[in-house]
Simulated assay, not measured.
Amino acid sequence: MTDAEQSGGHPAGWLEGYVALVTGGGSGIGRAVAHRFVAEGASVTILGRDADQLTEAVKAAPDPSRMHAVEADTRDSAQLHQAVDDTVSRFGKLDTLVPNAGIWDYQRQLTRLSGEDLAATFDEVFAVNVKGYLLAVEAAWRELVRSRGSVVMTLSNASFYVNGGGPIYTASKHACLGLMRELAYELAPKVRVNGVACGGMNTDLRGPEALSMRERSIAASFAKKGPNAPPPSIPLHDSSTDPRDFTAAYVLLASREQSGPMTGQAISVDGGIGVRGFATPAGGDHL
């Protein structure tokens, strides 16, 4: 039994006293990370566009008093600045920014989209997945310099490998990897910038409005395969895995004490996608 348990308290977590802001924190990996941060001792602001999701995420937190929700769009710089201001006003500082809000293109291949669809989908996906990250860091960097804090970006297996999405999603996640590395250089030595490259998981990740996929989620798509059909297989698990299983790397990278010398690094938490090879030798056999 630990000293904290003997005294009736709780053992301190890796993020005791930290303050974080998580974009896309109402569902999926963002919500799981926010809850894990609270469990590790942090106070957390979650940001998203769905007020009901945000409210539910706060209620479900390990300690709702240390979680704050802000309804905002990551494509809007003014709203992001307000979220940072709200966080500092409520909790006193900002130690960690987790740019996480994103959308998926459901692996729509180039040859299955018109030029008009490609143009509209590109603008939307890059606005959320890339510009949203860039604007979030711009809104937060001053506070992170003050706290000698860090940025932990949600990346993807698609930041390194093909077929984790279609060409637009894959390009957006490759862009996020480059953005993470560039900002790690630009913000050193005051602010560390790292990323977590996640694999498939059971989330409510949505698609682009440009393809009429705003109401479609990955979890629902897996369910449509039938009650007895397994979800897509990954070496260590399958894509029905709970997002909570992916959160430890975020805690590691947020903690100065545990990862102080690390910046410009992406930790792959992909279940082994990077070592499985390709499902098929070529993606264009249908052409």
Score class of each variant (00 low, 15 high):
4 A>Q: 08
12 A>Y: 10
14 W>C: 09
21 L>I: 07
24 G>C: 13
33 V>K: 08
36 R>D: 10
39 A>T: 10
42 A>E: 05
44 V>Q: 11
52 D>H: 09
52 D>F: 00
57 A>C: 05
59 K>A: 11
62 P>W: 00
73 D>L: 03
74 T>W: 01
75 R>D: 07
79 Q>W: 03
80 L>V: 03
81 H>D: 15
82 Q>M: 08
85 D>G: 02
85 D>W: 02
90 R>K: 09
91 F>W: 12
94 L>I: 08
100 N>P: 04
101 A>Y: 03
108 R>M: 04
108 R>E: 03
113 L>C: 15
114 S>Q: 10
116 E>I: 05
117 D>Y: 01
117 D>K: 05
118 L>G: 05
120 A>R: 13
120 A>I: 00
122 F>K: 09
123 D>R: 12
124 E>I: 02
126 F>D: 12
126 F>L: 11
133 Y>G: 14
134 L>W: 15
136 A>E: 03
141 W>Y: 15
141 W>T: 09
142 R>C: 06
152 V>N: 13
154 T>K: 07
156 S>C: 04
160 F>T: 03
163 N>E: 14
163 N>F: 08
168 I>W: 07
168 I>K: 05
172 S>E: 14
173 K>A: 12
173 K>F: 00
173 K>I: 03
178 G>S: 15
180 M>E: 13
180 M>G: 14
185 Y>E: 12
186 E>S: 09
186 E>P: 00
186 E>L: 07
187 L>E: 13
187 L>V: 02
188 A>E: 05
189 P>F: 07
194 N>G: 13
200 G>I: 07
203 T>Q: 04
203 T>Y: 06
203 T>P: 08
205 L>T: 15
206 R>N: 14
206 R>S: 15
207 G>S: 09
214 R>V: 10
220 A>C: 02
222 F>S: 01
224 K>R: 14
228 N>F: 03
229 A>Q: 08
230 P>K: 05
232 P>D: 06
237 H>E: 14
237 H>Q: 11
240 S>N: 12
242 D>W: 02
248 A>F: 07
248 A>H: 06
249 A>C: 13
250 Y>L: 08
253 L>T: 01
261 P>F: 13
264 G>F: 03
277 G>C: 00
277 G>Q: 02
280 T>N: 15
